[in-house]
């Protein structure tokens, strides 16, 4: 009787553990913000990017310690709209500078300076040039940050310990994120495995009771 009781207790414990592991897995899958896989070298990463692109994923990213030629095409990235934004703001700089100088020197408070006309275009060109350049340069910098959604204090990639260790040193990673329309955590895991990804991890916030300090 005792034996029987202890045996079934053992079973129950195992069963409970299995259920809890299963539950944990489900919880992790529920909390998934993306799936990351590691690749051996830049060439493998480039090939992986092409396959992820061809599979129809759009919200994915690749990480390498250095730029890889041809990655833009491999990822299917479109041309950045930054140039047009910069042109727009640069034109505002040109117009703004001319209007400002015309208004102050020729309309609101006209004074003759060294015998020049009120609206003395050559004298206005340096300021017009500088304002065009400074607005273009600031737009280029701020726009570049904004289009990259930077600065940000946290990114799901930081959940991966492996990435934090090797990401800027010698690791080549590709990640597909949960905000992709096609994202299905099991399917993505299988897919990354099938294209040669290693050390596949689900990116998720630490579950209750899990050590989040690492």
């Amino acid at each position: 009787m005792n034996e029987l009781a202890s045996q079934s207790a053992e079973d129950l414990k195992k069963q409970a553990e299995a259920t809890s592991a299963k539950a944990k897995e489900i919880l992790i899958e529920e909390a998934a913000e993306g799936v990351v896989a590691e690749f051996d070298n830049p060439a493998a990463l480039l090939e992986a990017a092409e396959k992820i692109r061809d599979a129809g994923y759009q919200r994915f990213e690749v990480y390498s310690p250095f730029p890889i030629h041809g990655m833009d095409d491999a990822m299917g990235l479109k041309r950045s709209p930054l140039g047009y934004i910069v042109f727009g703001f640069g034109s505002i700089g040109t117009m703004g500078a001319l209007l400002l100088q015309w208004w102050t020197s020729a309309v609101d408070y006209p004074i003759v300076y060294s015998g020049k006309p009120y609206f003395a275009l050559p004298a206005f060109v340096p300021i017009t040039f500088e304002l065009t350049v400074i607005l273009s340069a600031f737009t280029a910098m701020v726009g570049m940050f904004a289009l990259n959604r930077m600065p940000r204090f946290f990114h799901p990639m930081f959940y991966s310990e492996n990435f934090c260790k090797k990401g800027s040193d010698d690791g080549f990673f590709a990640a597909i994120f949960a905000w992709d329309k096609k994202f299905d955590v099991r399917e993505v895991k299988r897919f990354l495995q099938s294209i040669g990804g290693k050390n596949i991890e689900i990116l998720h916030r630490p579950l209750n009771g899990e050590d989040s300090s690492k």
């Binding site: 060294s114 020049k116 050559p122 004298a123 060109v125 340096p126």
Partner: peptide
């Protein structure tokens, strides 16, 4: 323009 403007001014 740099040449022109200084002379003009």
């Amino acid at each position: 323009f740099s040449q022109f403007m200084l002379i003009w001014y």
